[in-house]
Protein backbone atom coordinates (compact mmCIF):
# COMPACT_ATOMS: atom_id res chain seq x y z
CA UNK A 1 0.00 0.00 0.00
CA UNK A 2 1.16 3.45 -0.73
CA UNK A 3 1.95 4.47 2.74
CA UNK A 4 5.42 5.50 1.75
CA UNK A 5 4.84 9.17 1.49
CA UNK A 6 7.70 11.52 1.07
CA UNK A 7 9.71 12.14 4.18
CA UNK A 8 8.32 15.43 5.37
CA UNK A 9 10.91 17.87 6.56
CA UNK A 10 8.60 18.75 9.34
CA UNK A 11 8.47 21.30 11.99
CA UNK A 12 6.36 19.63 14.65
CA UNK A 13 4.01 22.23 15.92
CA UNK A 14 3.36 24.06 12.72
CA UNK A 15 -0.23 23.02 12.36
CA UNK A 16 -1.77 23.62 9.05
CA UNK A 17 -4.47 26.07 9.27
CA UNK A 18 -7.33 24.11 7.76
CA UNK A 19 -8.08 26.24 4.76
CA UNK A 20 -10.58 28.28 6.64
CA UNK A 21 -12.88 29.51 3.97
CA UNK A 22 -11.73 29.80 0.42
CA UNK A 23 -9.10 32.38 -0.30
CA UNK A 24 -11.81 34.74 -1.41
CA UNK A 25 -15.45 35.23 -0.56
CA UNK A 26 -17.69 33.10 -2.68
CA UNK A 27 -21.26 33.70 -3.65
CA UNK A 28 -23.67 31.44 -1.81
CA UNK A 29 -24.71 29.49 -4.89
CA UNK A 30 -21.14 28.47 -5.55
CA UNK A 31 -20.77 27.05 -2.06
CA UNK A 32 -23.88 25.02 -2.62
CA UNK A 33 -22.54 23.62 -5.88
CA UNK A 34 -19.17 22.75 -4.37
CA UNK A 35 -20.84 21.11 -1.41
CA UNK A 36 -23.11 19.11 -3.71
CA UNK A 37 -20.10 17.94 -5.71
CA UNK A 38 -18.40 17.02 -2.46
CA UNK A 39 -21.34 14.94 -1.29
CA UNK A 40 -21.44 13.10 -4.62
CA UNK A 41 -17.72 12.36 -4.38
CA UNK A 42 -17.91 11.13 -0.81
CA UNK A 43 -20.89 8.96 -1.70
CA UNK A 44 -18.90 7.38 -4.54
CA UNK A 45 -16.02 6.68 -2.19
CA UNK A 46 -18.16 5.31 0.60
CA UNK A 47 -20.50 3.25 -1.55
CA UNK A 48 -18.27 0.14 -1.75
CA UNK A 49 -18.03 0.12 2.05
CA UNK A 50 -21.76 0.28 2.41
CA UNK A 51 -22.04 -2.66 0.04
CA UNK A 52 -19.44 -4.59 2.03
CA UNK A 53 -21.08 -3.80 5.35
CA UNK A 54 -24.54 -4.77 4.12
CA UNK A 55 -23.23 -7.99 2.64
CA UNK A 56 -21.52 -8.90 5.89
CA UNK A 57 -24.96 -8.79 7.57
CA UNK A 58 -26.82 -10.95 5.08
CA UNK A 59 -27.68 -14.59 5.48
CA UNK A 60 -26.12 -17.16 3.18
CA UNK A 61 -29.44 -17.71 1.37
CA UNK A 62 -30.10 -14.05 0.74
CA UNK A 63 -26.68 -13.31 -0.80
CA UNK A 64 -28.16 -13.36 -4.27
CA UNK A 65 -31.25 -11.36 -3.57
CA UNK A 66 -31.59 -8.19 -5.58
CA UNK A 67 -32.85 -5.91 -2.81
CA UNK A 68 -30.28 -3.44 -1.59
CA UNK A 69 -31.09 -3.81 2.09
CA UNK A 70 -30.88 -7.31 3.57
CA UNK A 71 -34.31 -8.70 4.39
CA UNK A 72 -33.07 -9.94 7.71
CA UNK A 73 -30.04 -8.66 9.55
CA UNK A 74 -27.70 -11.47 10.52
CA UNK A 75 -25.51 -9.94 13.20
CA UNK A 76 -24.19 -13.37 14.07
CA UNK A 77 -21.86 -13.18 11.03
CA UNK A 78 -19.79 -10.66 12.95
CA UNK A 79 -19.82 -12.65 16.19
CA UNK A 80 -19.16 -15.96 14.42
CA UNK A 81 -15.86 -14.52 13.25
CA UNK A 82 -14.42 -14.85 16.73
CA UNK A 83 -15.05 -18.57 16.89
CA UNK A 84 -13.90 -19.24 13.31
CA UNK A 85 -10.34 -19.97 12.26
CA UNK A 86 -9.99 -16.40 11.07
CA UNK A 87 -9.73 -15.17 14.66
CA UNK A 88 -6.37 -16.93 14.78
CA UNK A 89 -5.30 -15.11 11.61
CA UNK A 90 -6.34 -11.80 13.15
CA UNK A 91 -4.13 -12.67 16.08
CA UNK A 92 -1.21 -13.30 13.68
CA UNK A 93 -1.82 -9.94 12.01
CA UNK A 94 -1.88 -8.23 15.39
CA UNK A 95 1.36 -9.87 16.46
CA UNK A 96 3.12 -9.05 13.17
CA UNK A 97 1.97 -5.41 13.16
CA UNK A 98 2.86 -4.90 16.83
CA UNK A 99 6.17 -6.72 16.51
CA UNK A 100 7.35 -4.78 13.50
CA UNK A 101 6.25 -1.49 15.08
CA UNK A 102 8.31 -2.25 18.19
CA UNK A 103 11.24 -3.30 16.02
CA UNK A 104 11.08 -0.06 14.03
CA UNK A 105 10.85 1.96 17.24
CA UNK A 106 13.89 0.29 18.80
CA UNK A 107 16.01 0.45 15.66
CA UNK A 108 15.00 3.76 14.09
CA UNK A 109 14.92 5.91 17.20
CA UNK A 110 18.66 5.84 18.06
CA UNK A 111 19.68 6.17 14.41
CA UNK A 112 17.34 9.08 13.76
CA UNK A 113 18.24 10.85 16.99
CA UNK A 114 21.97 10.46 16.50
CA UNK A 115 21.99 11.51 12.85
CA UNK A 116 19.87 14.56 13.67
CA UNK A 117 22.04 15.70 16.57
CA UNK A 118 25.56 14.93 15.39
CA UNK A 119 27.62 15.67 12.32
CA UNK A 120 29.81 12.71 11.56
CA UNK A 121 31.56 11.18 8.61
CA UNK A 122 29.12 9.27 6.44
CA UNK A 123 26.02 10.94 7.85
CA UNK A 124 24.66 12.09 4.48
CA UNK A 125 25.60 8.77 2.89
CA UNK A 126 23.70 6.95 5.64
CA UNK A 127 20.53 8.99 5.18
CA UNK A 128 20.61 8.64 1.40
CA UNK A 129 21.27 4.92 1.62
CA UNK A 130 18.27 4.53 3.91
CA UNK A 131 16.13 6.46 1.46
CA UNK A 132 17.25 4.39 -1.51
CA UNK A 133 16.26 1.14 0.21
CA UNK A 134 12.75 2.58 0.29
CA UNK A 135 12.67 2.58 -3.51
CA UNK A 136 13.26 -1.13 -3.90
CA UNK A 137 10.03 -2.91 -4.24
CA UNK A 138 9.20 -6.16 -2.54
CA UNK A 139 8.59 -8.24 -5.66
CA UNK A 140 12.10 -7.79 -7.06
CA UNK A 141 13.52 -9.01 -3.76
CA UNK A 142 10.93 -11.66 -3.05
CA UNK A 143 13.04 -14.54 -4.31
CA UNK A 144 16.04 -13.33 -2.33
CA UNK A 145 13.99 -12.87 0.83
CA UNK A 146 12.33 -16.25 0.53
CA UNK A 147 15.60 -18.09 0.00
CA UNK A 148 17.31 -16.18 2.78
CA UNK A 149 14.64 -17.02 5.33
CA UNK A 150 14.51 -20.58 4.04
CA UNK A 151 18.18 -20.94 4.96
CA UNK A 152 17.51 -19.53 8.44
CA UNK A 153 14.58 -21.91 8.83
CA UNK A 154 12.29 -18.92 9.27
CA UNK A 155 9.84 -19.55 6.46
CA UNK A 156 6.30 -19.81 7.80
CA UNK A 157 7.40 -18.16 11.03
CA UNK A 158 6.05 -14.99 12.52
CA UNK A 159 9.60 -13.68 13.03
CA UNK A 160 10.28 -13.47 9.32
CA UNK A 161 7.12 -11.39 8.82
CA UNK A 162 8.05 -9.08 11.70
CA UNK A 163 11.55 -8.60 10.32
CA UNK A 164 10.39 -8.02 6.73
CA UNK A 165 7.66 -5.55 7.67
CA UNK A 166 10.02 -3.74 10.01
CA UNK A 167 12.62 -3.48 7.27
CA UNK A 168 10.16 -2.26 4.65
CA UNK A 169 9.03 0.61 6.89
CA UNK A 170 12.31 1.50 8.50
CA UNK A 171 13.42 4.09 5.95
CA UNK A 172 10.27 6.16 6.31
CA UNK A 173 10.49 6.04 10.12
CA UNK A 174 14.16 7.06 10.19
CA UNK A 175 13.49 10.02 7.90
CA UNK A 176 10.42 11.35 9.63
CA UNK A 177 11.99 10.96 13.08
CA UNK A 178 15.21 12.55 11.92
CA UNK A 179 13.22 15.55 10.69
CA UNK A 180 11.41 15.86 14.03
CA UNK A 181 14.55 15.62 16.13
CA UNK A 182 16.33 18.11 13.91
CA UNK A 183 13.51 20.59 14.43
CA UNK A 184 13.89 20.59 18.23
CA UNK A 185 16.38 23.27 19.25
CA UNK A 186 19.57 21.81 20.65
CA UNK A 187 19.68 24.59 23.23
CA UNK A 188 16.61 23.21 24.98
CA UNK A 189 18.31 19.89 25.50
CA UNK A 190 21.59 21.50 26.54
CA UNK A 191 19.84 23.72 29.05
CA UNK A 192 18.26 20.67 30.65
CA UNK A 193 21.66 18.97 30.67
CA UNK A 194 23.29 21.94 32.41
CA UNK A 195 20.45 22.02 34.93
CA UNK A 196 21.73 18.69 36.12
CA UNK A 197 19.44 16.27 34.35
CA UNK A 198 22.25 14.33 32.75
CA UNK A 199 22.38 13.36 29.10
CA UNK A 200 19.65 10.77 29.38
CA UNK A 201 17.52 12.90 31.65
CA UNK A 202 17.63 15.68 29.08
CA UNK A 203 16.79 13.22 26.33
CA UNK A 204 13.85 11.64 28.12
CA UNK A 205 12.43 14.75 29.78
CA UNK A 206 12.84 17.26 26.97
CA UNK A 207 13.61 15.87 23.55
CA UNK A 208 11.46 12.76 23.42
CA UNK A 209 8.28 14.44 24.70
CA UNK A 210 8.74 17.21 22.13
CA UNK A 211 9.27 14.68 19.36
CA UNK A 212 6.31 12.58 20.47
CA UNK A 213 3.95 13.61 17.63
CA UNK A 214 6.58 12.51 15.10
CA UNK A 215 7.23 9.27 16.95
CA UNK A 216 3.51 8.45 17.07
CA UNK A 217 3.03 9.26 13.38
CA UNK A 218 5.94 7.04 12.38
CA UNK A 219 4.70 4.21 14.57
CA UNK A 220 1.11 4.36 13.32
CA UNK A 221 2.32 4.41 9.72
CA UNK A 222 4.42 1.32 10.36
CA UNK A 223 1.56 -0.42 12.13
CA UNK A 224 -0.92 0.28 9.31
CA UNK A 225 1.54 -0.76 6.59
CA UNK A 226 2.38 -4.01 8.40
CA UNK A 227 -1.30 -4.69 9.09
CA UNK A 228 -2.12 -4.28 5.38
CA UNK A 229 0.91 -6.06 3.90
CA UNK A 230 0.08 -8.82 1.43
CA UNK A 231 2.78 -9.98 -1.01
CA UNK A 232 5.50 -10.89 1.46
CA UNK A 233 3.04 -12.67 3.75
CA UNK A 234 1.63 -14.56 0.79
CA UNK A 235 5.11 -15.76 -0.14
CA UNK A 236 6.56 -16.39 3.31
CA UNK A 237 3.69 -18.28 4.94
CA UNK A 238 2.73 -21.78 3.91
CA UNK A 239 0.26 -23.06 6.51
CA UNK A 240 -3.16 -21.42 6.82
CA UNK A 241 -2.88 -20.90 10.58
CA UNK A 242 0.28 -18.84 10.19
CA UNK A 243 -1.16 -16.47 7.61
CA UNK A 244 -2.09 -12.93 8.51
CA UNK A 245 -5.70 -11.93 7.96
CA UNK A 246 -5.15 -10.26 4.55
CA UNK A 247 -3.82 -13.50 3.08
CA UNK A 248 -6.23 -15.76 4.94
CA UNK A 249 -9.27 -13.80 3.71
CA UNK A 250 -8.15 -14.19 0.13
CA UNK A 251 -7.70 -17.93 0.43
CA UNK A 252 -11.53 -18.07 0.71
CA UNK A 253 -11.67 -17.10 -2.94
CA UNK A 254 -11.40 -19.94 -5.40
CA UNK A 255 -13.12 -22.35 -3.07
CA UNK A 256 -16.15 -24.13 -4.40
CA UNK A 257 -18.60 -21.82 -2.71
CA UNK A 258 -17.54 -18.46 -1.35
CA UNK A 259 -19.22 -17.47 1.92
CA UNK A 260 -19.21 -13.80 1.09
CA UNK A 261 -21.06 -12.81 4.24
CA UNK A 262 -18.37 -14.39 6.48
CA UNK A 263 -15.61 -13.09 4.25
CA UNK A 264 -16.91 -9.55 4.57
CA UNK A 265 -17.52 -9.90 8.29
CA UNK A 266 -13.78 -10.67 8.52
CA UNK A 267 -12.96 -7.78 6.17
CA UNK A 268 -14.98 -5.32 8.24
CA UNK A 269 -13.18 -6.45 11.37
CA UNK A 270 -9.80 -6.23 9.60
CA UNK A 271 -10.54 -2.70 8.42
CA UNK A 272 -11.86 -1.02 11.57
CA UNK A 273 -8.53 -0.78 13.49
CA UNK A 274 -6.72 0.72 10.50
CA UNK A 275 -9.39 3.34 9.93
CA UNK A 276 -9.33 4.37 13.59
CA UNK A 277 -5.55 4.65 13.59
CA UNK A 278 -5.53 6.54 10.31
CA UNK A 279 -8.15 8.97 11.58
CA UNK A 280 -5.84 9.73 14.50
CA UNK A 281 -2.95 10.84 12.29
CA UNK A 282 -4.78 12.13 9.21
CA UNK A 283 -4.46 15.80 10.14
CA UNK A 284 -0.86 15.38 11.09
CA UNK A 285 -0.03 13.77 7.75
CA UNK A 286 -1.42 16.67 5.77
CA UNK A 287 0.18 19.09 8.23
CA UNK A 288 3.58 17.45 8.01
CA UNK A 289 3.61 17.49 4.25
CA UNK A 290 2.61 21.11 4.15
CA UNK A 291 5.11 22.23 6.74
CA UNK A 292 7.77 20.58 4.62
CA UNK A 293 6.99 22.69 1.59
CA UNK A 294 6.63 26.02 3.38
CA UNK A 295 10.24 26.15 4.46
Amino acid sequence: MAVNTMPPRTRPHSHVRPARGAPRRMPKLKTVIVAAAAYVISFLFLFPYVVMLLTSLRSQDSLREVSFWPEEWVWSNLTNFWTSGLAGNLWVTLKVATGSTVLVLLVALPAAYYSARHRFRGRTAFLILVLITQMFQPTAMLVGIYREFYQFGLVDSIWSLILVNGGFNLAFAVWILNAYFASIPRELEEAAFIDGNGRFGALFRITLPLALPGVITALIFTFIAAWNEFVAALTLTTTPENQPLTVALNSFIGQYQVDWQNLFAGSVIATIPVIILFALIERKVVGGLTAGSIK
Binding site: M1, A2, A19, V247, S267, T271
Partner: peptide, 26 residues
Amino acid sequence: RAFRGRAFLRASILIPWAVPTAVAGL
Protein backbone atom coordinates in the same frame (compact mmCIF):
# COMPACT_ATOMS: atom_id res chain seq x y z
CA ARG B 1 -13.49 24.83 0.30
CA ALA B 2 -15.49 25.52 3.39
CA PHE B 3 -18.96 24.03 3.68
CA ARG B 4 -21.03 22.02 6.08
CA GLY B 5 -19.76 18.47 6.41
CA ARG B 6 -16.26 19.13 5.15
CA ALA B 7 -14.61 17.04 7.86
CA PHE B 8 -16.86 14.12 6.97
CA LEU B 9 -15.98 14.51 3.29
CA ARG B 10 -12.28 14.52 4.01
CA ALA B 11 -12.52 11.42 6.15
CA SER B 12 -14.60 9.54 3.60
CA ILE B 13 -12.24 10.41 0.77
CA LEU B 14 -9.10 9.52 2.67
CA ILE B 15 -10.28 6.26 4.18
CA PRO B 16 -9.79 4.12 1.02
CA TRP B 17 -6.11 4.87 1.23
CA ALA B 18 -5.80 3.25 4.67
CA VAL B 19 -7.84 0.15 3.88
CA PRO B 20 -5.85 -3.02 3.19
CA THR B 21 -5.54 -3.46 -0.59
CA ALA B 22 -6.44 -7.11 -0.18
CA VAL B 23 -9.74 -6.14 1.45
CA ALA B 24 -10.41 -3.47 -1.18
CA GLY B 25 -9.80 -6.09 -3.87
CA LEU B 26 -12.35 -8.44 -2.30
